[in-house]
Amino acid sequence: MGWRCAGLRWGGGRPAVGWYGEGRGERSSALVYGQWLAFAGVGARGCLGVRRSGRWTPCPTGAEVPGRAGGGQCAECARLDRSFSVAADTHVADPRPYRVYLAWFGPGLVKVGITAEERGPARLLEQGAVTWSWLGRGPLMAARRTEELLRAALGVPDRIAYGRKRAVRGSLPPAAERAAEVAELHARAGGLAGWPESLERLPCEAVDHAGAFGLDGLPRPRRVLAELADGAVVAGRLAGAAGPDLHLQDGLVVDTRLLAGWELVAVASPEQAVTTAPVREIRPEGDGGQDGLF
């Protein structure tokens, strides 16, 4: 088996494509905005297995994964993955400290969430948060209770569909307006009663990811990859990246969750290559569908 794509990874505030090879381990390919990308799927999309504690356990059945599935796992491996998940409340005994955050993705698109403190801002980059701030830190269950309190009191969700996030990235307000909306919600959150005593409140320090994502001058997203197939090509100049999405200069968005599990080969003469993989149009207001957990 060759190297299979494991999706987009964020390290040190920079995007990279992750790879997994059974018996070989992991590697990554750094991405640079402005570079040409041109690749094609090879063979069939295979299940990556389960990654836990920094290591992959191969899929026991070597199952194939449907082309339109939003991740490189078969149903059984996805179930096993979720059986040890903080997000799914199946790992409530985690002793690590957690942080509660407020994340802004676009006008009116704000969510509250939690992440392990040791991960720093990685979760915000993975979700495509444009501007964000910490709200507090403490034990897992205190962080979870705070998340639920703030979600109900502020009227903000704990998840936003990726389709809605990507649809607004090409027409965002200035950084000052983004930070002001985060600060206003942070102040409202701080004024609420009922915070757990074990959760330390943190001041508002708005962080902006426009530079990391390459959002300045980003073309308006017009189309998104629908699926990959054997021999299907994706090609274009990389303009930016946010969360799991690669934004190409021609307005095509490549959701790298659809690449996970595929073996990919480079296409010769990338500047002359054209996309042949199926795509679908992006409505300006977002596709309205819940196409991912976060």
Score class of each variant (00 low, 15 high):
258 L>K: 10
281 E>G: 10
104 W>Q: 10
134 W>E: 12
283 R>T: 10
81 D>M: 07
48 L>A: 03
118 E>G: 13
104 W>H: 14
43 G>Q: 00
274 V>P: 01
242 A>F: 04
219 P>L: 15
97 P>L: 14
207 V>G: 00
33 Y>M: 04
228 L>P: 04
68 R>D: 15
155 G>T: 13
109 L>D: 12
146 T>L: 12
151 R>N: 05
259 L>I: 05
240 G>T: 07
280 R>V: 08
53 S>W: 09
261 G>Y: 04
65 V>R: 09
156 V>W: 03
38 A>P: 04
141 M>W: 10
25 G>Q: 12
248 L>M: 05
148 E>D: 15
238 L>P: 08
188 R>I: 07
226 A>D: 15
56 W>Y: 09
267 V>T: 02
117 E>S: 15
93 A>C: 08
64 E>M: 06
75 A>H: 10
263 E>T: 14
49 G>S: 07
267 V>D: 11
234 V>P: 01
54 G>A: 00
182 V>A: 12
181 E>D: 13
291 D>C: 12
134 W>L: 15
230 D>G: 05
3 W>Y: 03
217 G>W: 09
192 L>S: 02
170 G>M: 12
90 T>M: 12
283 R>D: 11
85 S>W: 07
102 L>K: 11
238 L>R: 01
37 L>A: 06
179 A>S: 14
98 Y>W: 15
155 G>W: 07
265 V>A: 15
62 G>M: 04
165 K>M: 03
17 V>F: 14
222 R>Q: 11
86 V>T: 15
150 L>E: 06
183 A>G: 15
5 C>I: 02
110 V>T: 14
122 A>E: 09
192 L>H: 09
38 A>K: 00
290 Q>K: 08
212 A>N: 03
177 E>V: 08
157 P>H: 04
54 G>V: 01
3 W>Q: 10
258 L>Q: 05
136 G>L: 08
32 V>I: 00
261 G>M: 04
202 L>Y: 05
127 Q>E: 13
31 L>N: 13
112 V>A: 14
1 M>N: 06
123 R>S: 01
123 R>I: 00
252 L>H: 04
149 L>P: 05
97 P>W: 13
277 A>H: 03
249 Q>W: 03
197 E>P: 06
26 E>V: 06
231 G>R: 01
156 V>H: 09
238 L>N: 06
186 H>N: 15
294 F>D: 02
127 Q>F: 03
155 G>N: 13
271 E>N: 02
142 A>D: 14
31 L>S: 06
218 L>Q: 08
125 L>Q: 00
169 R>H: 05
55 R>N: 05
64 E>F: 06
216 D>W: 10
162 Y>W: 11
177 E>S: 14
266 A>K: 07
97 P>C: 07
182 V>T: 06
289 G>Y: 02
70 G>Q: 14
80 L>Y: 10
117 E>D: 07
245 D>E: 14
217 G>F: 14
13 G>E: 11
